[in-house]
Design a protein around this nucleic acid. Sequence first.
DNA 1: CCGTATCCACAACGATACTG
DNA 2: CAGTATCGTTGTGGATACGG
Lengths: 176, 176
Amino acid sequence: MESAVRMAGTLGPRAGWRAERCSIAAALEVIGARSSFLILREAFYGTSRFDDFARRAGISEPVTAARLRELVAHGLLEREPYREPGQLTRERYRLTRMGIELFPALAALLQWGDRWLEGVGGVELRHQECGERAGIELRCDAGHTVGPGELELAARRRDAPGARPATHDQKEAGDV
Amino acid sequence: MESAVRMAGTLGPRAGWRAERCSIAAALEVIGARSSFLILREAFYGTSRFDDFARRAGISEPVTAARLRELVAHGLLEREPYREPGQLTRERYRLTRMGIELFPALAALLQWGDRWLEGVGGVELRHQECGERAGIELRCDAGHTVGPGELELAARRRDAPGARPATHDQKEAGDV
DNA sequence: CCGTATCCACAACGATACTG
DNA sequence: CAGTATCGTTGTGGATACGG
């Protein structure tokens, strides 16, 4: 195969947008450091306190502090004071909606590592309500499962909404 | 919400596996560098030649060479001599199956950046065959769309196959 | 066109020690 | 418990120059 993604119309010739406007590059500006991924991983596992982040993610305190600060500044985490009875007031970090919606990216890496790398894995995701295994998938709005080779890259249409809403499916039946 | 992912049974107490066996950490060992992501992005866009990688991804030749070498060594790309009529034999880089299956991770970052970051985006994925917009989704084997908050993390069952199998069959032929 | 060699800058990170 | 301060090391990457 020559390429996993076919270029459509307007995009092919113009390559400059890649560096300037590429969402992937921009996302990497925010979470590009390895420790950012690991911090987020822990956040998804439910970690919320400073030293738990450091210990479980296996990174040093100074780095932990720097990453948490960045992630809060970028809006993926929020800091919140809390207090257990009889204890001092402490800080806790929680995922915002923006942070939560990054989960599919982590899940994709998890799935890929599980499938292709040796000696890792042994964990799986399940849908809480029905107990079935869950994972990420490429799908189109018509409901088809899409292989990576069946994709086409296109400039966004003017009538399309800002971005693909991440959580709820808005299915336009009738095609297919 | 306290955590995006609920821990199930055996996993909670044991946190050590995170560092040692975590597929995410292992994946980041392979593609953790920013330039690796950018190289892969270009590969998905169809780039196959050395200086196109360097120019389009916006990274210097030495770094390009280093990343390509790593990605080939890890099995995500393969090097292949080719020859256009009347030209010298040149090298070309192509995604392997292992590399192609990383696409969902890139797509997830793309979608997230598109949705949450300012001033980027304007590109969308479409299903080639039906023309509908495509994107990644969390789904369970029962067919439900799963919100990031409806997940549960569990140790893999013994009877389950190695990893979540890729959901499509890739056609391997079809060269330029 | 496809790289390598060399050098340099800076970011990322760990280790250690210390503070409120 | 939740950090900060300091230091040294390694990784990442740009610039430049050069060779197959």
